[in-house]
């Protein structure tokens, strides 16, 4: 590695986040007297990363394009609540979960399209638009459709799918734990996001638009179309993630996603995405989600009171936003 490349690496937020993660793992590992490194605990933490990690991918691509999506949890919640309600009423998803997923993805795509249509056509501030649609979607779910919690009546195929596992691990005490099948989807989504962002012209378009929208237009990108597609896809993927969460928790709760954006967005910023767009990587985002999940799931292990959870998450938000703002300032000078 030459000097210039080294310098570039050390200037990236991702690099420091990764160091922080390594240090955290070491510290928690030592304080918990090795408990953290038990196979069962590793599986638990990886499992806990699935939903947040997948949402973070959605959030990342939007932030790379210079936007803010506050509505993805609301889209997910409305999509899966609607999908499970329909499946329940129609008696679907008794043998295969596909119908549930398909419905949720379609609903998510439609809601995302609505975001995309407003954002690309009226050139409004994405944060305000999605904040509006978020409230609107929640209103539709709670008020208009009166969607209710579905717990023990959840269609069996969805429950079964959520309980299915990839492999089983046994820890030193003989305790067994299984790795949920859903983890595959996290890996796939990260891989696909990384591929799209780095290896496709669409992904480069997102970086270009995030870097300089006017230039992207002049360079020949169809900015309007790109944004529309982006928000539609993010909506569809959010619907899919929502269904994953339903299967994992064996229940469909319309409110389960409320305020999720306030933990995901700061995490993505912490992972190196810029609040001004054009920056961010899958690696950094996964690292940041890793940090947050690790801490939230190890506090008791190392004997820290649950009271501190909000303190910690608030700190993450502050650090993430400050780092991003400082970098933007440094760039300006």
């Amino acid at each position: 590695m030459n000097k210039a490349a080294m310098k570039r690496m050390t200037r990236r937020t991702e690099f420091y986040m990764f160091l922080v993660l390594i240090i955290l793992i070491a510290v928690i590992g030592i304080v918990s007297k090795g408990s953290l490194f038990e196979s069962t605990q590793i599986v638990t933490i990886l499992r806990a990363m699935v939903v947040d990690g997948m949402f973070a991918m959605c959030c990342l691509v939007v932030m790379v394009s210079g936007g803010f999506d506050m509505s993805f949890p609301a889209i997910a919640a409305l999509a899966y609540s609607l999908a499970t309600t329909i499946c329940l009423n129609q008696g679907w998803c008794q043998t295969s979960p596909i119908a549930g997923f398909a419905l949720s993805i379609v609903f998510g795509a439609i809601l995302g399209m609505f975001n995309g249509w407003i954002i690309s056509n009226f050139k409004l501030n994405t944060m305000l638009v999605t904040l509006g649609t978020q409230t609107f979607f929640t209103g539709v779910s709670m008020g208009l459709l009166q969607l209710r919690e579905i717990t023990s009546t959840l269609p069996v195929a969805l429950k079964k799918f959520g309980l299915s596992s990839l492999f089983e691990v046994t820890n030193s005490a003989g305790l067994k734990s299984t790795m949920t099948t859903m983890f595959i989807f996290l890996v796939i989504l990260c891989a696909v996001t990384s591929f799209v962002l780095n290896k496709t012209m669409f992904g480069r378009a997102l970086y270009a638009i995030g870097g300089n929208e006017v230039s992207a237009e002049r360079a020949g990108y169809n900015v309007k179309k790109t944004k529309f597609i982006l928000y539609t896809v993010v909506g569809a993927v959010s619907g899919f993630i929502g269904m994953i969460r339903v299967c994992m928790a064996s229940q469909s709760i319309p409110k389960a996603m409320v305020n999720k954006e306030f933990t995901i967005i700061p995490a993505v910023i912490l992972g190196g995405a810029s609040i001004f767009g054009g920056e961010g990587s899958v690696f950094g985002t996964v690292t940041a989600i890793g940090i947050i999940t690790l801490v939230n799931n190890s506090m008791l292990l190392v004997g820290i009171d649950s009271y501190w959870k909000d303190f910690f998450n608030g700190l993450i938000i502050l650090i993430g936003v400050t780092v991003s703002a400082l970098q933007a300032m440094r760039k300006k000078h």
Partner: peptide, 29 residues
């Protein structure tokens, strides 16, 4: 243009190549 129509967040390589890649209608990098 006066603002040079560049992408400050991308590398020099990408800034140089991106326009012709778009014009050529490429899908992959």
């Amino acid at each position: 243009y006066q603002d040079l129509s560049i992408f400050p967040n991308l590398t020099v390589r990408e800034n140089l190549a991106i326009n012709s890649e778009i014009t050529a209608g490429r899908k992959l990098v």
